[in-house]
Amino acid sequence: MRKHFSAFLEKVVTENDDIVFITGDLGYNALENLVDKMGDRFINAGVAEQNMVGMAAGMASQGYRVICYSIAPFVVYRCLEQIRNDVCFHNMPVYIVGNGGGYGYGIMGSSHHAIEDIGTLSALPNMRCYIPAFIEDMNACLGEMFARRGPAYFRLGLGKNMPADMSLTTYGAATGQNNNAALTIIAQSPVANNLVAALQQPGVSAKTDVFIINKMPLAELPDDITASIKKTGKVLTIEEHVAIGGLGSAVSLLVNEAGVPVSKFKSLHAEGYPGGLYGNQSYHQQESGLDEQNITRVINTYF
């Protein structure tokens, strides 16, 4: 996804001279193409994330669309007040791009993970978080973000191509509705690739409706998801984010407010560091039950 992200960006900054890219001193072996293409519009703000975001708001007030780029936790938590006060309060077109997100930086350790980013930022006024799962919906998210002149957060993970049986939707992606579906699965972020693998076991696809939501906050439940839950009465949500402020809690609230009866609701989400030990992204996904094997096991409990 990072390669595709870089290619998309190269095109959009070449075609639009009102876009500025600020990095918090990251980009070795990744952003050199942008340095060449953008000239003065590529800025290294140094290891000073709060100033980076405050400046971005100042530049946006003068007519620029400004990308602020760093490793996800550094550009989310360090400068939360700048994002809230300077960017969101004033509805400025500042796009916070967080590389990694979730457990994406794996063995780099907890300082480099961002498993509370979406809950934190999607609570802010005017903010829209984009959390693409696949290369295809990432491109759609990027197109929408640059067209939308307001605050955005983009969680840039490592996704694959979207499965052939899914199509893009306004909220993300979805499989077609199965008449015999007994379970509605709603997932977010590239951890959806583990779900895609779990769905390969014989007979499961025909019994599930699968939806990917790549934008937060979730203001309302999309009609086709509501229709699916009405049919199945059973929900499983999957996300690489803590339960608080995440996809599962948002879906739960909306389903309850809509009065849709649900007999079983399970949320698989980031559990933090339950064993107090550290490893790669897959290791942490496994600790939180977000791996293919556990997702398979949980799906089978519904049938």
């Binding site: 530049m59 007030s61 700048q82």
Partner: peptide, 12 residues
């Protein structure tokens, strides 16, 4: 907050 904002404006 003012100096980062003003610096961004000056840079722009």
């Amino acid at each position: 907050h003012g100096m980062p904002l003003g610096t961004g404006i000056a840079k722009a």
